[in-house]
Structures are given as structure tokens and as C-alpha cells.
């Protein structure tokens, strides 16, 4: 019997800034499907085990230490918000390790994290980035109506992949 691949789903963004936090809402939706609802007040970074092989990870942004986590998985699904710069409402792209000089001092991209994982630990998971269009980045815990609908679709798409 083929060994099941370990999967990590990484969401990042600021849940206090409306659609920027869409990844949190998607992770919460996925966790709910697994019968493990995540409480908003309990938002915390780090790993949540949905099953033996499927884990969630959330933070406001990607950090260098996540490279170590990534090295322990065969598959990774990164979830983030995107702006109108990306034309698709939901964009799913494969990601390869590539360090990208970010516009932000303390900001890493998913490809950069894979690059760190590959260079530091000699391995990295097969990865995709699911990015979801954000429409409203003002101070709010709630998603805009449009992004809320997209988040539901993204949850369905990710659940299909997990199944």
C-alpha cells in the first residue's frame, strides 16, 4: 500500500484587515469540514493537526522558520489574498523554490520559503499557491461579500484536492 503523503496547508494574512485575512477564513472553513472549528479569538500561529497527515499552519505572514516545517511534508498548499494586479478571482499556481527579494523588509513569499527549505534542509514539498481576490482591506474582521463567496469556492477546491 502506498504511503499517504503529508500535506501542510499554510494560510497567511491579517484577519484584522478585511479581505487580507481571507486565508484565515479558508483555513477555518477547511477545519470545520474536518469537524475541528477554529475560534476567531484563538487565532494563533503554528500548526493545527486536522488528521495524521493533514496539518494547517497560520500566521500574519510567512517567516523563515516555516522552511523547517515545510521540509517535513510532501505537499504544501499556500493560501493568500491578492489585489486587482492579478486578473483571476481565484488563482492556483504551482510554486517552485525561488528566492524573491520582497518589497517588505520582514516579508517572505511562498517561493522564497521553499527556496529556504531546499537550501537549508535539502528538500521541499510539491507546492501550489491558492490566491484569492481581495476587494476591501479596511479594518474589519469580516470579508467583503465578493471575497466571502470566493473563499467558499476556494474551500471546495482545496477539499477536492485533499480528497
Amino acid at each position: 500500500m502506498r504511503k499517504k503523503e503529508k500535506i501542510i496547508i499554510l494560510g497567511f494574512g491579517n484577519p484584522d484587515r478585511g479581505d487580507d485575512g481571507v486565508a484565515w477564513h479558508v483555513l477555518a472553513g477547511i477545519a470545520k469540514r474536518f469537524g475541528q472549528p477554529l475560534a476567531y479569538e484563538g487565532i494563533e500561529s503554528g500548526l493545527v493537526n486536522l488528521s495524521k497527515d493533514i496539518h494547517l499552519w497560520f500566521n500574519l505572514q510567512l517567516i523563515p522558520e516555516v522552511a523547517e516545517e515545510l521540509a517535513a511534508y510532501q505537499q504544501a498548499i499556500f493560501i493568500d489574498a491578492h489585489t486587482a494586479e492579478i486578473k483571476e478571482e481565484i488563482k492556483i499556481s504551482p510554486i517552485e523554490p525561488e528566492f524573491q527579494n520582497s518589497p517588505f523588509t520582514h516579508h517572505l513569499t511562498a517561493a522564497s520559503c521553499l527556496s529556504l527549505s531546499k537550501t537549508l534542509y535539502g528538500k521541499y514539498p510539491k507546492s501550489i499557491l491558492v490566491s484569492i481576490r481581495g476587494y476591501d482591506f479596511s479594518f474589519s474582521h469580516d470579508l467583503s461579500q465578493k471575497t466571502k463567496g470566493l473563499a467558499e469556492k476556494a474551500i471546495e477546491m482545496i477539499m477536492k484536492r485533499l480528497n
Binding site: F12, G13, D20, T83, P103, F104, G134
Partner: peptide, 16 residues
């Protein structure tokens, strides 16, 4: 090491 209004980091937000 400046830190400006740094709460959001959506993809496509800040191309240089």
C-alpha cells in the same frame, strides 16, 4: 529597518 503601515501584504499589492 523602517516599519510603516505594515498590516497587509496581499499579492500584487506592492510591485516596485
Amino acid at each position: 529597518d523602517p516599519c510603516l503601515s505594515c498590516s497587509t501584504h496581499a499579492i500584487g499589492q506592492m510591485p516596485m
